[in-house]
Design a protein around this nucleic acid. Structure first.
Lengths: 117, 117
DNA sequence: CTGGATCCCTTAAGATACTG
DNA sequence: CAGTATCTTAAGGGATCCAG
């Protein structure tokens, strides 16, 4: 049971780790569909390389759909798959606990300590 | 809102990343309280260094309590704090989605591809 | 027994330049 | 426009030895 339980938790974590995945998902969720360049504008600090690799991983996991328009100049749109929409409860769960925890950390260590962690 | 939402998701991820945290938490949850050496036995592949550092992070986040017995030889027990017990719903959420996702991956790529991922 | 300190290696991530 | 390819840097993690 140890294995099963942790395997699955780690599977879930897998699609969320990678420094940029949460924020990428957030934007795609919010806009329904986004082009590569639009994502770049929304997350300016990310490099093309990272953006590409993170999107590819999300695509592999069937969370994100990649639609390529065969045209010049190229156009590629990313969207959340039907299956991918199923992660919402998990994200909500992480989000709400995260908020609680930020408050808790502030209580424990003060405003400053939390900011520059 | 982008910032708030992702900040909190990443805060939540923070306490779970680190290759060993989920499995460590799992064991402590299961046993209520565990000594350092017991954890080592339960997770044989982990080094002392990693076990120590992961436990310290969990302690910092007030998820795990560290109780030191002032005696020779030393004895230290780790347990989940009251506050720490509040992560259960989040872990459940990750766990159940993780299980779903493992099944989904098997559907997409077959048994083998999933095993040695 | 429960760690700390050190060294080393591997992997994740950033910078930059180039291409169909 | 949407990427690849290559190189460099930073961080995570492992091995080993030492200590109260």
């Amino acid at each position: 049971m140890t294995e099963e339980c942790n395997g699955s938790v780690e599977t879930a974590l897998d699609i969320l780790v990678g420094k940029w995945k949460p924020i990428i998902l957030f934007h795609i969720f919010q806009h329904e569909t986004l082009r590569f360049s639009e994502l770049q504008r929304l997350v300016p600090e990310i490099t093309k390389k990272m953006l590409t690799s993170q999107l590819r991983e999300l695509e592999y996991h069937d969370i994100v759909h990649r639609k390529v328009y065969a045209q010049i100049p190229p156009k590629v749109e990313y969207s959340i798959t039907e299956y991918g929409k199923g992660i919402t409860p998990m994200l909500e769960s992480l989000n709400s606990w995260g908020n609680l925890h930020l408050a808790h950390l502030r209580e424990l260590y003060g405003e400053e300590a939390v900011k520059n962690k």
